[in-house]
Computed example of a mutant assay.
Amino acid sequence: MTITVGLAGITGKFGHLLAKHLLRNEDVLLRGYSRNAGKVSPEISSSPRVKLFEGDAFDEAKIAPFVEGCDVVICSYLGDNKLMVDGQKKLIDACEVSNVPRYIASDWAVDYTKLQLGELFPKDPMKHVKAYLETKNTVKGVHILIGCFMDTVFSPFLGLVDVQNNTFKYWGDGTELWESTSYNNAAEFTAKVAIDSSAVGIKKYLGDSKTVKEIAAYYEKVYDIKPTLQHLGSLDELKTRMHALRAEKPAEVLSYMPFYFVYYWLNGSTAVGPNTDNGYYKDVKQETWEDYMRNRTMQQLPGVNVNFGSA
């Protein structure tokens, strides 16, 4: 039996990976929504099971035919608060009108449900969207939590790994767990969730959960280079620093936002594990920290584009 999956943000890095995994299931008919369908890669757009729709994230007239007839709609947007809240609300409203039974929100994050609004402020839109979905009668929300992306940990964004100088930097005492999942592994799990009509609510998946010292040991094992471990300070010192930077120059969001991510990721308040839904889809193999490095050269590690989404 075929299942029609709508994917908003199909041109983004994560959207592209997700589309590839979805199309590996021959029962999937895929609809893609983006501002520019010409940016969809030929390996996706050439499939006879793919139908592309163009439109703005806020264009109700264009969104309506995109979601019509879908069994599930996935949003892989990443952008400012207006896009992440109001843009998703447009999709959700259209799903409700068209009787789409499930909506997979653009989450893929630490467990933000455990936080109060304003604590990890970049994730506030997710809390608003989750609350909005709970007001709907027909469309049910699906929220996939994966910790922090491994790809992002190795990127310059968080400032934790310097591959060029073989240095792992860390806050805390080094025993904190780095709960993470690769882009690709998260896309695999999401593709399974999309075709599973029983999957609703909070779903938790992790590639691996290890301390910085364990991850550094894998780095040495895989690349035969012993990295340096650089202690940056305690978690309390990190908290003080991030609040000070925000108070000093609130408009310079990128100067302090990474510290907020790291603090709430490491302090245990947003832990996804240890109990996850990994075992529910037996054919999806977890990509561990060691697997992640074995599947990539050192030169590939810091090359991730942090902006994995697209409208």
Rank of each mutant, 00 (worst) to 15 (best):
D124Q: 01
M242Y: 08
S234A: 03
V50A: 12
L238H: 02
G87E: 06
T270H: 11
Y218L: 10
R294K: 15
N185Y: 09
L254K: 14
Y132G: 00
G268E: 02
W289S: 07
A244R: 08
A187I: 04
V139G: 02
L22C: 11
H231V: 02
K221I: 01
V161K: 02
D291W: 12
L232Q: 11
Q300V: 03
V306K: 07
P258M: 10
Y103G: 01
E179V: 11
S234G: 02
F261T: 08
S255E: 15
R241I: 10
E287F: 06
L206A: 01
N25L: 13
D173I: 04
L23M: 14
M293V: 00
P101V: 03
K51P: 07
C75L: 05
P65R: 10
S209N: 00
Y256N: 05
I3C: 07
Y256Q: 06
W171E: 02
K136R: 13
K39Y: 09
K82I: 13
L266M: 08
G268A: 12
C95N: 00
Y292T: 04
L29P: 06
E134P: 09
P156Q: 03
N295M: 13
W108E: 05
A186N: 06
K249I: 06
P302N: 01
P42G: 06
Q286K: 15
P156V: 01
A187E: 05
E176R: 08
V304I: 09
A251R: 09
P227V: 08
L115E: 04
N166F: 05
E68Y: 12
L7P: 01
G172N: 03
P122W: 00
W178Y: 14
V129H: 03
V253S: 12
A191Y: 13
V139M: 04
V222F: 08
K192N: 14
V284K: 11
C148V: 15
A247Y: 06
G15H: 05
N185V: 05
V72L: 02
L235R: 09
L160C: 00
G273K: 05
H143V: 01
K203Q: 14
G79N: 09
N99K: 15
D27S: 15
K51R: 14
V28G: 04
S46V: 11
N295F: 07
G147Y: 04
S98W: 00
K114Y: 07
G174Y: 02
A61E: 15
K114S: 14
Y292D: 01
Y183E: 09
A131I: 09
N166T: 13
I92C: 03
Y264C: 05
A37H: 10
S255K: 15
S106G: 13
V97F: 06
L206P: 01
L238S: 07
A19D: 10
A251K: 13
Y132S: 03
D162H: 01
F149A: 03
L78P: 00
V304F: 14
D27E: 15
E188V: 10
T288M: 04
E119N: 00
D27G: 12
